[in-house]
Amino acid sequence: MSKRYGLIILSVFFSLVMALMPLPISMETFRPDWVLLVLMYWSLALPHRVNIGTAWLTGLIIDLATGSPLGVHSLTYAVTIYITASNYQKLRNFSIWQQGLLVAVFLALHHLLQFWLHHFLLDVYFSPQYLWPVLTGAICWPWLFLLLRKYRRHFRIR
């Protein structure tokens, strides 16, 4: 495994820590999906390194860490990253704010697919608060994009 791939894994690990870090109960519903945002960035920047398999494995780790039914995050991450990676050439041409809007659409797809799976497996009912991470993720996207791009250029990750 190369040093550059190790740096990608380090950024995904840091996003896993951010996803699992405790927050006050009132703020928990607004937590962006840091892991998916980081995976989307890397699948746009380096689709040959971060792909569906990486997303599936990372989703499996999130499932195990959060106690979610096994495979829910894996499936939703894989579907979202498939759409992102298959359209990476188009998405790269958009401005950062247009990418933020498309990221919001992808996050909404992820959360609605995740809700559907939870509803099917656990009999959970929909609440509009379930989509707050879509808004906060779209707001965080430009800053996360710029931070990870600087990280990628500084360490020459290709």
Rank of each mutant, 00 (worst) to 15 (best):
M21I: 11
P24F: 07
E28R: 14
E28H: 10
D33C: 11
W34Y: 15
V35L: 13
V35N: 04
L36D: 06
L39D: 06
Y41P: 01
L46V: 06
P47R: 02
P47S: 02
P47E: 01
V50H: 01
N51V: 00
I52P: 00
A55K: 01
L57I: 11
L60Q: 03
I62P: 03
D63W: 03
D63T: 07
S68G: 05
S68H: 10
S68V: 09
G71H: 08
G71N: 09
V72G: 05
H73Y: 14
L75W: 08
A78C: 05
A78I: 04
T80E: 06
I81P: 01
I81G: 04
Y82A: 11
I83H: 04
I83S: 12
T84G: 00
T84E: 03
T84D: 01
A85M: 08
S86R: 15
N87K: 14
Q89N: 10
K90W: 09
K90A: 12
S95W: 03
Q98E: 15
Q99H: 05
G100H: 04
L101G: 14
L101D: 05
H111V: 00
H111T: 02
H111I: 00
L113C: 10
L113S: 13
L113M: 14
Q114V: 00
H119R: 13
F120E: 13
